[in-house]
Computed example of a mutant assay.
Amino acid sequence: MIPLNQRLQRVSNYIKGDYLADIGSDHAYLPIFAIKNKLTKKAIAGEVIKGPFDASKRNVSEHQLSNHIDVRLGDGLTVIQHEDAITSITICGMGGPLIAKIISDGADKLHNKPRLVLQSNIQSSAIRIKLTELNYGIINEEIMEEKGHIYEIIVAEYFENKPTMTRAELKFGPELVKDKNDLFNKKWEREKEALLKIKNNLNPNTHAKRLNEINDELDLINEVL
């Protein structure tokens, strides 16, 4: 069986429909797992770097799934062709700003209104801001810890009317903020400590603007915690 870490197993729970595009596929583990477990019927494994692309091709071939998984070399959503009736897009294991850039640059590839399942390592707020701009609303979120790292999974669907989020929802997650569990508190206590460290090293005379931004962020974190 394909070795799938807990993070990607959680992501796989949200795959919808018959055609998955996994961007930055990392050995095509997720598409292989999804096909073998009948979570979808066919998939694209997209890779921007030749090494991981070759590894993905080998893996798909070894699992005899070349008829079901198309490994494509290209940047972000450029691997999706207009005629592909994609129903789910997964982008995992990257920073929030990079994921936001990928869906922004490839916005024209979302014509089929696929579900987006996005797992970020840092700065998920960048994703939420971009989703609202693209008329995507968040229907589910998860926070999880693996090997000492805290990750967030965002599941979004296309909405005809542009969804809106408050400043706190954009920063903390509209679903996560409803259920402030121990992991949520742990993550934001860590963020708070990091901000306080930065704050203590800034000169009030030369870094007044940054200090104001940090104080503003700390106020918001304290309010939510």
Rank of each mutant, 00 (worst) to 15 (best):
A45E: 03
N185C: 09
P174H: 11
E160H: 12
T132Y: 02
V71Y: 05
V48D: 01
T87Q: 07
D70W: 04
I150K: 12
K57S: 10
M144Y: 12
S56G: 07
F33Q: 00
Y136D: 07
Q6A: 12
T132Q: 14
R210I: 10
T206P: 07
L110R: 01
N201G: 15
D18P: 00
I214L: 14
A126R: 05
G137F: 13
G96Y: 08
W188I: 09
I129L: 13
Y19W: 01
H82S: 11
D105N: 08
G95C: 06
I80L: 06
L110V: 01
P114A: 06
Y136V: 07
K109P: 01
I80R: 02
K187C: 05
L218F: 11
E142D: 15
A21Q: 01
N59F: 03
A28H: 05
D179I: 14
D54N: 14
Q64N: 15
L98D: 05
S125Y: 06
V224I: 15
E217Q: 15
E142N: 13
I127Q: 08
K36V: 01
A100R: 03
V224C: 06
L225W: 04
I103W: 01
R58G: 04
S124F: 07
Q123T: 09
K36E: 12
S61T: 12
N59G: 13
I23Y: 02
H68T: 05
K36R: 14
T87E: 08
V60P: 00
I89Y: 02
E189G: 02
L195C: 03
N212D: 12
G96I: 05
A34M: 08
N37K: 05
K180W: 07
R72K: 08
Q9G: 05
H207T: 10
T87R: 02
R58N: 13
V224W: 02
D179F: 10
N121R: 10
A194P: 00
K180V: 07
D75L: 08
T166D: 07
F33E: 00
F184K: 08
G95Q: 09
G24Q: 07
I138N: 11
V79Y: 05
L4R: 06
I2W: 09
I99S: 05
D108E: 13
K109F: 00
D26L: 11
D18W: 00
K147W: 10
D216I: 07
L110H: 03
K36A: 04
N37P: 00
A107H: 08
E152N: 15
E146P: 03
E141G: 09
I198F: 07
F33K: 02
P52K: 10
R10W: 04
T78G: 00
N37C: 03
I15D: 00
L4D: 03
G96T: 01
A43V: 01
G17I: 05
H149E: 15
N205T: 12
C92D: 06
H68A: 15
N215G: 14
K130P: 00
E169G: 12
N67E: 15
H27E: 11
K197N: 09
L77E: 01
K41D: 14
H27Y: 13
S12E: 03
G96P: 01
L196M: 13
P52W: 09
D26Y: 10
A43L: 04
G74N: 03
I80E: 01
K192I: 09
H82W: 05
Q64D: 11
K50P: 00
E142G: 07
Q6N: 10
E191Y: 12
A55G: 00
D108V: 02
A208N: 11
I221S: 06
N215E: 15
